[in-house]
Every structure is written in structure tokens, then in C-alpha cells.
Design a binder for these strands. Structure first.
Lengths: 234, 234
DNA sequence: TAGCGCCTATGACAGCGGTCATAGTAGCCG
DNA sequence: CGGCTACTATGACCGCTGTCATAGGCGCTA
């Protein structure tokens, strides 16, 4: 359960196993190293960075404590940064899957899917966890420069796919990024409120209220198959 | 510098000095107790709850460390809860002042003012601090039930005035609360992104993108003086 | 002056958390 | 077999933090 392609265990840099855009799915137990990054993100999601101890991460990942030193010589800071990076990539990758799940891609539909991921979790497993990127921002933005940068990169890795998806739906280029920012901002804020209230009300509210604005941004009409006129082409 | 009207120093409950809706302004040095609550909020804003030590609060408030035990027998939990409560009341009270500052009250104008408070701070003093309520949510929502409730109350104390302001601008009653939630969600999320990027871009973006949707919600026309037709009256 | 509240002042303590140091195991190569 | 590398395993250290305990000052009433 922990062998074979652990060749990426170079404790040097944050060198991913080359293929970054793989199916970094729910619980990647590709090896103890990834398990620890994933566990760190999970624990940060719940109690924040400061409340997440290295020993806790090792226990949660069912990994030996000594391996933390081995795989993350940069200490907690490195581990947190990689957890944040993983979360950003994860969020970005999900966008494509959301699109695939939509019968007909619309901005409001995409946003509804993004929100639904959270309402589903909260209604099934409770309000214990939030967004790890938000947690890292709150806890480390001022104290740890490298983590602040990791968080910024995570937001970029999330906003990018959303903006490209909007472009693919016919949203004019100059509005894709602003709207993506608006979507993610609203979602993050609604997650906070939902956790505080232990109620998904805020999440469903932002999805409903933002829907018309998002769909109204589609100005380029699509063909019957959903394809867009190519840039510059007729 | 620490005498006279410290009659509110009852270390019992969270008994405010009767007049709650006073001008709880920037730095209320009404007494050492309020100073400590205010300082706690300030420090939580920066590094989160866990990174905020009791000793740090005392130093920041220029208050004796022993007073913490005296005024907050409930320990850190009580202090954090009161800081969150203060922040919620503060945010709620500012709404009225925003309205007064607007030449002609519109939903988008109110939101722009709410956002501007943050862009002003970030552009003048830097991106060191975020929202204390968000920080408390991230750090305590799962671990400390009382703080989670305090956070929920703070959001309510903030959403309420915003919703009432919207109602006063002609937004139909069934949309005031949803729109207030949307405004606060977007703002909170944009604060996170702004801190991460050390750029006010996200803040200005949500203000700009949300503006038409907010103003479009005004359905009841106002009279020339800005007054509304009374509920049920002609 | 004594007594008694409010508040202040410190020292101690117990626990925890990140990190270092050291040593042990497993597999592979020669 | 020796030696090397990758990984695991623990124990210890040091600093910090929330809290408790104890005691000191201060202002009032009697």
C-alpha cells in the first residue's frame, strides 16, 4: 500500500511527480508523502493552521512521524504551503468536472455546482470544515510570507479555470476574470457564514442571487451543440 | 488614564455599559476592559485567534496582565467572544454612518462604501489585517461552540443593519436579507483574496461587478427627498 | 486606624508543539 | 559481506501559552 512509484520522494524541492493535472481526487494515497499533504489540508480545513500539529498530521495520514522530517525538511511551513497548493490545484481541477456534469454549461450552473459541493458536504458530514486556503490566509498571511504567496497562487490556480470556463460559455474576455473573482469571493464568504450559522442558507442564497448576473454576462450566442465561434473567426 | 467611569468593570457577565449603540468608534479607550477587548480584536485580525496570546493582548492594550484574569474570568474564550461581538456591533454601526456619507443612498453606493473602508486601510496601512470575525470562524468554529455562536451573532449584527438599509432604499423585503448576505459574503471573500494577493483588486472587482445587480433590486421608487412610501400606507 | 471591596502585580506550573539529534531498519549494489 | 541510501523511530529540548495562586496597593467607609 506504500511502495512502487514512490520515486518522487525527493525531499528537496516541491517537485511534483511531473504530471500535475492528474486526477488528484478525494483521497490520494499515492504514497505517504502525498497522504501527509492531504491530511494537512484536511486538518487545516477544520481548526486552522496553528491548531494543526505536525504529530496530528502524521497520525491522520497514518504515516510515521519521522517521515515528516524526511519529506518536509522545510518543516511545518513547507508542509502547509504544499497543502495549500494542493487545495488550489484540487479546486481548479474540479471546475472541469463540474462542466462535464452540466447538461448545458452556463455560468450560473457552474456556480451552482461549486456551491453544491459545499452544501452536500455540510448536509451530509456537518459543518466541521471550511476552506483550507481561507484558513491559511487568516493564520499566515501576515506572519509567513511564503505561505501568503502559496495562498495567492492557490487562488490563481482556482480563478484561472473558472475564468476559462466562463470564456467557453460566451462571457466576453474582459469580464471572465472579474466574474470568476466575484464567484470565488462570494463562495468563500458564504462558507464562513455557513460554518458560523451551521446552516447552508448563505451558500444557497449567494448561488440564487448571483445566478441572473452571471448568466446575463453571456453575450456571445452559442451554436446548437454548445460550441463557440472561434476568436477572430466568423 | 485609567480611572473615573470604570464602573462597568463588573467581571460577571458580558454586561455592556447599558448604552450599546454608542459611538463604538475606532479606538475606544473607555477603560482598560474595553481596551483589552478592542486590542484582542485587533490582534485576532492579524494573526488569527491561536496566534493571539493573552500576554500580547495585555501589552497591546497597555493594560496590566493581572486585569485579564479579573475582567475575563472565563479566560481566553470569553475575551475572544467579546472581541467578536464588538467587531459585529462595530460593523453594524458603521452601516448607518455609510448611509449618512452617501449623497443619495443606493445599494451599490452602500456596498462601495463598505468596500472602500477596506481598500482605504489596505492602501494606507498595508495588508496586515483581515476581518476578526472571519478569523474566529476559521480558528474556532469547530473547536469552541461558544465562539461559533458569537461569530454567528456577529454576522447577524452586521447583516441586519445592511438589510434594513436596503429596505430603506426601496429593495423589496423578501430580497433585503439575501442581498445583504451576498454583499457580506462577497466582501469577506474579497478580503481574503486581497490579503493573499496584497492587492485590492478583488475588493474593487466585487464592488464593480455587484453594483448593477444591487441597484437593479430597487423596485420601489423614492420621492424627491429620498423618503419611501410607508409600509401599507399610501 | 481598621476593614474591605476592587484592581494590580508576579511567579509558578503544567502542557503542548516544532524541531533537532541520534539511532535503527530495509533494500540494493559491488 | 561491507557499504550506501532511503526511510523509520524515538527521545529530548526549548520556548511559548493559558491558567492558577498568592500577595501587594489603593480608595473608600466607619
Amino acid at each position: 500500500m506504500a511502495a512502487e512509484e514512490t520515486s518522487d520522494g525527493s525531499p528537496s524541492e516541491t517537485s511534483e511527480p511531473s504530471e500535475t493535472s492528474e486526477t488528484s481526487d478525494e483521497a490520494p494515497d499515492r504514497g505517504p508523502r502525498e497522504r501527509m499533504v492531504f491530511s494537512a489540508a484536511q486538518l487545516i480545513r477544520r481548526g486552522g493552521v496553528a491548531a494543526t500539529g505536525m504529530r496530528d498530521v502524521a497520525v491522520h495520514a497514518q504515516a510515521p512521524r519521522g517521515s515528516l522530517q524526511h519529506y518536509f525538511p522545510g518543516g511545518k511551513e513547507q508542509l502547509v504551503n504544499e497543502a495549500v497548493g494542493w487545495a488550489g490545484r484540487y479546486a481548479g481541477n474540479r471546475v472541469a468536472r463540474f462542466l462535464a456534469a452540466l447538461p448545458e454549461p452556463t455560468p450560473a450552473g457552474l456556480f451552482a455546482e461549486m456551491v453544491r459541493q459545499w452544501t452536500d458536504e455540510y448536509e451530509s458530514t456537518g459543518f466541521a470544515a471550511g476552506c483550507p486556503v481561507a484558513a491559511a490566509t487568516v493564520d499566515c498571511a501576515e506572519s509567513t510570507a511564503s505561505t501568503r504567496q502559496a495562498v495567492a497562487a492557490a487562488f490563481t490556480a482556482w480563478t484561472g479555470p473558472v475564468a476559462r470556463a466562463l470564456a467557453g460559455m460566451g462571457v466576453p474576455h474582459e469580464r471572465t476574470e472579474p466574474l470568476a473573482t466575484l464567484m470565488i469571493s462570494s463562495l468563500e464568504g458564504a462558507i464562513l457564514i455557513a460554518r458560523a450559522e451551521e446552516d447552508v442558507r448563505a451558500l444557497t442564497t449567494v448561488a440564487r442571487e448571483l445566478a441572473p448576473l452571471l448568466d446575463a454576462a453571456v453575450t456571445v450566442s452559442r451554436g446548437p451543440a454548445g460550441e463557440l465561434p472561434a476568436k477572430g473567426a466568423d
